[in-house]
Amino acid sequence: MKKILIILIPLAILALIVIKLVANKQVAEDKVYIYNADQAIPVTVTLAKNQEVNQSIQYTGTFEPFRESKLSAEVQGKVNQLFVENGSHVRAGQVLIQLDDALLKLQLEAAKVQVASLEADLKRYQVLVENDAIQGVQLEKTEVALASARIQVQTVQEQINKSQIKAPFAGIITAKLTERGDFALPSKPLLQLTDIHQLKLQLQIPESDLKFFAEGSPTQVTVPALDLTLSAKVSLVGSRGSLSKSFPVELMLNNLENQPIKAGMFGEVSLVNSLSASGIVIPSSAILGSDLQPQVYLVKNGKAILQDVKIARRMENQVLISAGLQPGDQIISSGLINVYEGANISINQ
Protein backbone atom coordinates (compact mmCIF):
# COMPACT_ATOMS: atom_id res chain seq x y z
CA MET A 1 0.00 0.00 0.00
CA LYS A 2 2.81 2.39 0.87
CA LYS A 3 4.45 1.72 -2.47
CA ILE A 4 1.20 2.55 -4.31
CA LEU A 5 0.80 5.82 -2.39
CA ILE A 6 4.37 6.82 -3.13
CA ILE A 7 3.59 6.47 -6.84
CA LEU A 8 0.07 7.96 -6.87
CA ILE A 9 0.77 11.14 -4.84
CA PRO A 10 3.47 12.53 -7.21
CA LEU A 11 1.28 11.66 -10.19
CA ALA A 12 -1.67 13.52 -8.64
CA ILE A 13 0.46 16.59 -7.93
CA LEU A 14 1.84 16.54 -11.47
CA ALA A 15 -1.69 16.28 -12.88
CA LEU A 16 -2.82 19.29 -10.84
CA ILE A 17 0.14 21.34 -12.09
CA VAL A 18 -0.60 20.45 -15.71
CA ILE A 19 -4.28 21.34 -15.30
CA LYS A 20 -3.34 24.74 -13.75
CA LEU A 21 -0.85 25.55 -16.51
CA VAL A 22 -3.41 24.72 -19.20
CA ALA A 23 -5.97 26.94 -17.47
CA ASN A 24 -3.47 29.85 -17.21
CA LYS A 25 -2.59 29.50 -20.88
CA GLN A 26 -6.24 29.70 -21.84
CA VAL A 27 -6.73 32.86 -19.71
CA ALA A 28 -3.65 34.51 -21.32
CA GLU A 29 -4.81 33.65 -24.84
CA ASP A 30 -8.25 35.08 -24.08
CA LYS A 31 -6.62 38.39 -23.09
CA VAL A 32 -4.44 38.66 -26.23
CA TYR A 33 -5.99 40.83 -28.95
CA ILE A 34 -5.85 39.15 -32.34
CA TYR A 35 -6.13 41.71 -35.10
CA ASN A 36 -8.55 40.93 -37.88
CA ALA A 37 -7.16 42.50 -41.04
CA ASP A 38 -10.49 42.01 -42.80
CA GLN A 39 -12.42 43.98 -40.21
CA ALA A 40 -13.43 47.48 -41.42
CA ILE A 41 -12.09 50.50 -39.50
CA PRO A 42 -14.79 53.07 -38.68
CA VAL A 43 -13.85 56.61 -39.74
CA THR A 44 -15.41 59.99 -40.49
CA VAL A 45 -14.89 61.44 -43.96
CA THR A 46 -15.11 64.90 -45.49
CA LEU A 47 -16.18 65.40 -49.09
CA ALA A 48 -13.73 67.56 -51.05
CA LYS A 49 -15.34 70.54 -52.79
CA ASN A 50 -14.27 73.92 -54.09
CA GLN A 51 -14.86 76.86 -51.74
CA GLU A 52 -14.32 80.59 -51.76
CA VAL A 53 -11.95 81.63 -48.96
CA ASN A 54 -12.02 85.11 -47.43
CA GLN A 55 -9.48 84.99 -44.67
CA SER A 56 -7.96 87.48 -42.26
CA ILE A 57 -4.41 86.59 -41.22
CA GLN A 58 -2.46 88.39 -38.51
CA TYR A 59 1.30 88.59 -38.39
CA THR A 60 2.82 89.49 -35.04
CA GLY A 61 6.23 91.05 -34.56
CA THR A 62 8.26 93.12 -32.12
CA PHE A 63 8.98 96.83 -32.35
CA GLU A 64 12.67 97.75 -32.55
CA PRO A 65 14.07 101.28 -32.15
CA PHE A 66 14.91 103.31 -35.22
CA ARG A 67 18.49 103.45 -33.93
CA GLU A 68 20.28 102.55 -30.73
CA SER A 69 23.85 102.98 -29.61
CA LYS A 70 26.04 102.11 -26.63
CA LEU A 71 28.23 105.14 -25.99
CA SER A 72 31.86 104.76 -24.91
CA ALA A 73 34.66 107.23 -24.31
CA GLU A 74 37.20 107.86 -27.07
CA VAL A 75 39.87 108.64 -24.47
CA GLN A 76 40.41 107.15 -21.05
CA GLY A 77 39.83 109.08 -17.85
CA LYS A 78 37.85 109.37 -14.66
CA VAL A 79 34.14 110.23 -14.89
CA ASN A 80 33.91 113.69 -13.27
CA GLN A 81 30.29 114.52 -14.08
CA LEU A 82 27.26 112.61 -15.29
CA PHE A 83 24.50 114.87 -16.62
CA VAL A 84 21.77 112.29 -17.38
CA GLU A 85 19.82 109.47 -15.73
CA ASN A 86 17.82 106.53 -17.05
CA GLY A 87 14.86 107.87 -19.00
CA SER A 88 16.42 111.27 -19.72
CA HIS A 89 15.45 112.78 -23.08
CA VAL A 90 18.49 114.27 -24.80
CA ARG A 91 19.07 116.26 -27.96
CA ALA A 92 21.74 115.67 -30.57
CA GLY A 93 25.09 117.15 -29.47
CA GLN A 94 24.13 117.45 -25.79
CA VAL A 95 26.96 116.77 -23.32
CA LEU A 96 26.16 113.60 -21.37
CA ILE A 97 29.40 112.84 -19.50
CA GLN A 98 32.42 114.96 -18.60
CA LEU A 99 35.72 113.13 -18.06
CA ASP A 100 38.60 114.54 -16.02
CA ASP A 101 40.50 116.89 -18.38
CA ALA A 102 42.58 118.92 -15.86
CA LEU A 103 45.88 117.39 -16.99
CA LEU A 104 44.99 117.87 -20.64
CA LYS A 105 44.25 121.55 -20.06
CA LEU A 106 47.65 121.99 -18.45
CA GLN A 107 49.25 120.30 -21.45
CA LEU A 108 47.31 122.65 -23.71
CA GLU A 109 48.60 125.71 -21.85
CA ALA A 110 52.15 124.41 -22.07
CA ALA A 111 51.77 123.81 -25.80
CA LYS A 112 50.38 127.32 -26.31
CA VAL A 113 53.33 128.81 -24.39
CA GLN A 114 55.67 126.85 -26.64
CA VAL A 115 53.89 128.19 -29.73
CA ALA A 116 54.13 131.79 -28.45
CA SER A 117 57.85 131.38 -27.73
CA LEU A 118 58.56 129.95 -31.17
CA GLU A 119 56.54 132.70 -32.86
CA ALA A 120 58.69 135.31 -31.08
CA ASP A 121 61.87 133.46 -32.07
CA LEU A 122 60.66 133.27 -35.65
CA LYS A 123 60.19 137.05 -35.83
CA ARG A 124 63.69 137.68 -34.48
CA TYR A 125 65.29 135.17 -36.85
CA GLN A 126 63.51 136.70 -39.81
CA VAL A 127 65.05 140.10 -38.99
CA LEU A 128 68.48 138.58 -38.48
CA VAL A 129 68.34 136.63 -41.74
CA GLU A 130 67.28 139.74 -43.64
CA ASN A 131 70.39 141.51 -42.26
CA ASP A 132 72.64 138.45 -42.93
CA ALA A 133 73.32 138.17 -39.21
CA ILE A 134 72.59 134.43 -39.11
CA GLN A 135 72.24 131.61 -41.60
CA GLY A 136 68.81 130.77 -43.02
CA VAL A 137 68.94 127.22 -41.65
CA GLN A 138 68.21 128.46 -38.15
CA LEU A 139 65.09 130.19 -39.44
CA GLU A 140 63.96 127.01 -41.18
CA LYS A 141 64.38 124.93 -38.00
CA THR A 142 62.31 127.43 -36.07
CA GLU A 143 59.55 127.33 -38.67
CA VAL A 144 59.43 123.51 -38.47
CA ALA A 145 59.38 123.59 -34.66
CA LEU A 146 56.55 126.16 -34.70
CA ALA A 147 54.48 124.00 -37.07
CA SER A 148 55.02 120.98 -34.80
CA ALA A 149 54.03 122.98 -31.71
CA ARG A 150 50.83 124.17 -33.39
CA ILE A 151 49.96 120.54 -34.25
CA GLN A 152 50.56 119.66 -30.61
CA VAL A 153 48.08 122.37 -29.55
CA GLN A 154 45.46 120.95 -31.94
CA THR A 155 46.10 117.40 -30.72
CA VAL A 156 45.65 118.29 -27.06
CA GLN A 157 42.59 120.41 -27.88
CA GLU A 158 41.04 117.42 -29.69
CA GLN A 159 41.68 115.21 -26.64
CA ILE A 160 39.97 117.81 -24.44
CA ASN A 161 36.99 117.88 -26.80
CA LYS A 162 36.77 114.06 -26.64
CA SER A 163 36.73 114.13 -22.86
CA GLN A 164 33.12 115.30 -23.28
CA ILE A 165 30.81 112.46 -24.37
CA LYS A 166 28.00 113.95 -26.44
CA ALA A 167 24.77 112.47 -27.82
CA PRO A 168 25.24 111.50 -31.48
CA PHE A 169 21.47 111.79 -32.05
CA ALA A 170 18.34 112.76 -30.14
CA GLY A 171 16.82 110.03 -28.04
CA ILE A 172 16.26 108.56 -24.58
CA ILE A 173 18.84 107.18 -22.17
CA THR A 174 17.74 103.56 -21.73
CA ALA A 175 20.73 102.28 -19.75
CA LYS A 176 23.17 104.06 -17.43
CA LEU A 177 26.23 101.83 -17.13
CA THR A 178 28.57 104.09 -15.15
CA GLU A 179 28.64 106.41 -12.15
CA ARG A 180 30.64 109.44 -11.13
CA GLY A 181 34.15 108.39 -10.13
CA ASP A 182 34.31 105.39 -12.49
CA PHE A 183 37.25 105.08 -14.85
CA ALA A 184 36.22 105.22 -18.51
CA LEU A 185 37.98 103.22 -21.21
CA PRO A 186 37.37 103.25 -24.98
CA SER A 187 36.14 99.63 -24.81
CA LYS A 188 33.76 100.17 -21.88
CA PRO A 189 30.10 101.17 -22.63
CA LEU A 190 28.92 104.01 -20.41
CA LEU A 191 25.41 104.82 -21.66
CA GLN A 192 22.82 103.37 -24.01
CA LEU A 193 20.97 105.87 -26.18
CA THR A 194 17.74 104.82 -27.94
CA ASP A 195 15.83 106.71 -30.60
CA ILE A 196 12.13 105.72 -30.83
CA HIS A 197 10.74 108.72 -32.70
CA GLN A 198 10.49 106.11 -35.45
CA LEU A 199 10.13 102.36 -34.96
CA LYS A 200 10.81 99.22 -36.97
CA LEU A 201 8.40 96.29 -36.76
CA GLN A 202 10.17 92.99 -37.45
CA LEU A 203 7.98 90.21 -38.95
CA GLN A 204 8.53 86.70 -40.29
CA ILE A 205 6.40 86.15 -43.42
CA PRO A 206 5.81 82.81 -45.22
CA GLU A 207 7.08 82.77 -48.80
CA SER A 208 3.52 82.37 -50.11
CA ASP A 209 2.54 85.75 -48.59
CA LEU A 210 5.62 87.79 -49.58
CA LYS A 211 3.69 89.19 -52.54
CA PHE A 212 1.63 91.27 -50.08
CA PHE A 213 4.74 93.02 -48.70
CA ALA A 214 6.39 94.83 -51.59
CA GLU A 215 9.15 97.20 -50.49
CA GLY A 216 7.73 100.71 -50.09
CA SER A 217 4.08 99.58 -49.95
CA PRO A 218 1.85 101.09 -47.21
CA THR A 219 0.07 99.03 -44.56
CA GLN A 220 -1.61 99.41 -41.18
CA VAL A 221 0.01 98.33 -37.91
CA THR A 222 -1.94 97.73 -34.69
CA VAL A 223 -0.41 98.03 -31.21
CA PRO A 224 -2.63 95.78 -29.04
CA ALA A 225 -1.26 97.04 -25.71
CA LEU A 226 -2.23 100.64 -26.56
CA ASP A 227 -5.25 99.95 -28.81
CA LEU A 228 -3.58 102.04 -31.52
CA THR A 229 -3.56 101.65 -35.30
CA LEU A 230 -0.93 103.57 -37.26
CA SER A 231 0.20 103.81 -40.86
CA ALA A 232 3.47 102.10 -41.74
CA LYS A 233 5.55 101.38 -44.81
CA VAL A 234 7.50 98.26 -45.79
CA SER A 235 11.16 99.28 -45.55
CA LEU A 236 12.87 95.91 -46.04
CA VAL A 237 12.08 92.48 -47.48
CA GLY A 238 14.71 89.89 -46.61
CA SER A 239 16.59 88.12 -49.39
CA ARG A 240 17.27 84.94 -47.42
CA GLY A 241 14.65 82.78 -45.73
CA SER A 242 14.77 80.37 -42.82
CA LEU A 243 14.49 76.57 -42.97
CA SER A 244 10.73 76.94 -42.44
CA LYS A 245 10.51 79.06 -45.64
CA SER A 246 9.72 82.34 -43.88
CA PHE A 247 11.43 85.63 -44.68
CA PRO A 248 12.20 88.68 -42.52
CA VAL A 249 10.12 91.75 -43.36
CA GLU A 250 10.64 95.15 -41.72
CA LEU A 251 8.02 97.89 -41.49
CA MET A 252 8.82 101.50 -40.57
CA LEU A 253 6.37 103.82 -38.80
CA ASN A 254 6.44 107.16 -36.98
CA ASN A 255 5.80 107.15 -33.24
CA LEU A 256 3.32 109.65 -31.80
CA GLU A 257 4.56 112.92 -30.30
CA ASN A 258 4.63 111.61 -26.71
CA GLN A 259 6.25 108.36 -27.94
CA PRO A 260 3.78 105.89 -26.35
CA ILE A 261 5.06 102.93 -28.40
CA LYS A 262 8.15 101.45 -26.75
CA ALA A 263 10.82 99.21 -28.19
CA GLY A 264 9.99 95.60 -27.37
CA MET A 265 6.19 95.98 -27.62
CA PHE A 266 4.20 93.67 -29.90
CA GLY A 267 2.71 94.90 -33.16
CA GLU A 268 0.25 93.22 -35.52
CA VAL A 269 -0.38 93.44 -39.25
CA SER A 270 -3.68 92.08 -40.59
CA LEU A 271 -4.34 91.00 -44.17
CA VAL A 272 -8.01 90.64 -45.09
CA ASN A 273 -9.07 91.35 -48.66
CA SER A 274 -5.69 90.46 -50.12
CA LEU A 275 -6.04 86.82 -49.08
CA SER A 276 -9.26 85.98 -50.95
CA ALA A 277 -8.81 82.70 -52.83
CA SER A 278 -10.69 79.63 -54.00
CA GLY A 279 -9.81 75.96 -53.75
CA ILE A 280 -10.44 72.78 -51.83
CA VAL A 281 -10.62 73.36 -48.07
CA ILE A 282 -10.30 70.42 -45.67
CA PRO A 283 -9.97 70.10 -41.88
CA SER A 284 -6.42 70.35 -40.48
CA SER A 285 -7.03 67.05 -38.68
CA ALA A 286 -6.96 65.23 -42.04
CA ILE A 287 -3.34 66.23 -42.75
CA LEU A 288 -0.60 63.69 -42.05
CA GLY A 289 3.09 64.59 -41.84
CA SER A 290 4.65 68.05 -42.07
CA ASP A 291 3.92 70.94 -44.44
CA LEU A 292 6.97 69.88 -46.46
CA GLN A 293 5.41 66.50 -47.38
CA PRO A 294 1.72 66.60 -46.40
CA GLN A 295 -0.53 63.61 -47.10
CA VAL A 296 -4.16 62.59 -46.59
CA TYR A 297 -6.07 59.29 -46.66
CA LEU A 298 -8.73 58.95 -49.33
CA VAL A 299 -11.48 56.33 -49.30
CA LYS A 300 -11.69 54.52 -52.64
CA ASN A 301 -13.69 51.32 -53.14
CA GLY A 302 -13.95 50.90 -49.37
CA LYS A 303 -10.19 51.06 -48.78
CA ALA A 304 -7.78 53.72 -47.42
CA ILE A 305 -5.46 55.18 -50.06
CA LEU A 306 -2.60 57.52 -49.09
CA GLN A 307 -2.50 60.65 -51.26
CA ASP A 308 0.16 63.41 -51.49
CA VAL A 309 -1.21 66.95 -51.39
CA LYS A 310 0.14 70.50 -51.54
CA ILE A 311 -0.90 73.07 -48.92
CA ALA A 312 -1.53 76.60 -50.17
CA ARG A 313 -2.42 78.12 -46.80
CA ARG A 314 -3.37 77.18 -43.24
CA MET A 315 -6.42 78.93 -41.77
CA GLU A 316 -6.97 78.20 -38.07
CA ASN A 317 -8.42 74.63 -38.10
CA GLN A 318 -8.67 74.38 -41.88
CA VAL A 319 -6.24 73.98 -44.78
CA LEU A 320 -6.48 75.26 -48.34
CA ILE A 321 -5.22 72.60 -50.77
CA SER A 322 -3.71 73.69 -54.08
CA ALA A 323 -2.91 70.26 -55.57
CA GLY A 324 -3.52 66.55 -54.98
CA LEU A 325 -7.31 66.50 -54.50
CA GLN A 326 -10.31 66.61 -56.78
CA PRO A 327 -13.88 67.70 -55.97
CA GLY A 328 -15.82 64.69 -54.74
CA ASP A 329 -12.86 62.91 -53.11
CA GLN A 330 -13.67 61.32 -49.76
CA ILE A 331 -11.02 62.39 -47.24
CA ILE A 332 -10.66 60.72 -43.84
CA SER A 333 -10.85 63.53 -41.28
CA SER A 334 -11.08 61.56 -38.01
CA GLY A 335 -10.47 58.01 -36.80
CA LEU A 336 -7.00 57.96 -38.38
CA ILE A 337 -5.25 56.27 -35.47
CA ASN A 338 -5.76 52.72 -36.81
CA VAL A 339 -5.83 53.53 -40.51
CA TYR A 340 -3.11 52.25 -42.83
CA GLU A 341 -2.60 51.98 -46.58
CA GLY A 342 -5.09 49.49 -48.02
CA ALA A 343 -7.13 49.12 -44.82
CA ASN A 344 -10.84 48.27 -45.10
CA ILE A 345 -12.91 51.33 -44.17
CA SER A 346 -16.44 51.80 -42.87
CA ILE A 347 -17.77 55.36 -42.96
CA ASN A 348 -19.61 56.69 -39.92
CA GLN A 349 -22.91 58.22 -40.88
Score class of each variant (00 low, 15 high):
285 S>P: 02
182 D>K: 04
179 E>Q: 11
332 I>L: 00
305 I>L: 10
9 I>R: 02
261 I>T: 03
243 L>A: 12
2 K>D: 09
84 V>P: 05
168 P>W: 09
177 L>K: 12
175 A>F: 08
218 P>G: 06
189 P>M: 06
21 L>S: 09
245 K>E: 09
240 R>W: 10
177 L>R: 11
151 I>A: 15
218 P>M: 06
269 V>P: 05
152 Q>W: 00
32 V>K: 04
254 N>Y: 13
199 L>I: 07
302 G>I: 04
49 K>L: 05
164 Q>R: 13
144 V>G: 04
87 G>T: 07
59 Y>C: 08
42 P>N: 05
181 G>H: 08
188 K>V: 09
338 N>K: 10
94 Q>M: 10
41 I>S: 02
40 A>G: 02
222 T>V: 12
90 V>G: 06
346 S>P: 10
229 T>A: 14
257 E>T: 13
327 P>L: 03
253 L>N: 04
280 I>C: 05
94 Q>W: 08
117 S>M: 09
328 G>Q: 06
299 V>W: 01
54 N>T: 07
8 L>C: 06
100 D>T: 02
274 S>D: 14
308 D>Y: 01
221 V>Q: 00
259 Q>P: 15
14 L>R: 01
247 F>P: 12
88 S>R: 03
60 T>D: 06
191 L>H: 03
29 E>K: 04
172 I>M: 14
162 K>N: 14
136 G>E: 12
114 Q>M: 02
245 K>D: 09
135 Q>M: 10
2 K>E: 14
180 R>P: 11
140 E>D: 14
286 A>R: 00
123 K>C: 11
218 P>T: 08
181 G>E: 09
13 I>D: 01
266 F>H: 09
307 Q>M: 01
187 S>P: 10
219 T>S: 15
145 A>T: 06
189 P>G: 05
251 L>E: 04
316 E>D: 14
25 K>V: 15
335 G>S: 02
137 V>D: 15
75 V>T: 07
134 I>D: 00
207 E>N: 14
242 S>I: 10
301 N>H: 03
56 S>K: 14
149 A>V: 06
193 L>P: 11
39 Q>R: 08
275 L>A: 06
20 K>I: 11
216 G>M: 02
186 P>H: 02
297 Y>K: 01
181 G>S: 13
215 E>I: 11
210 L>A: 05
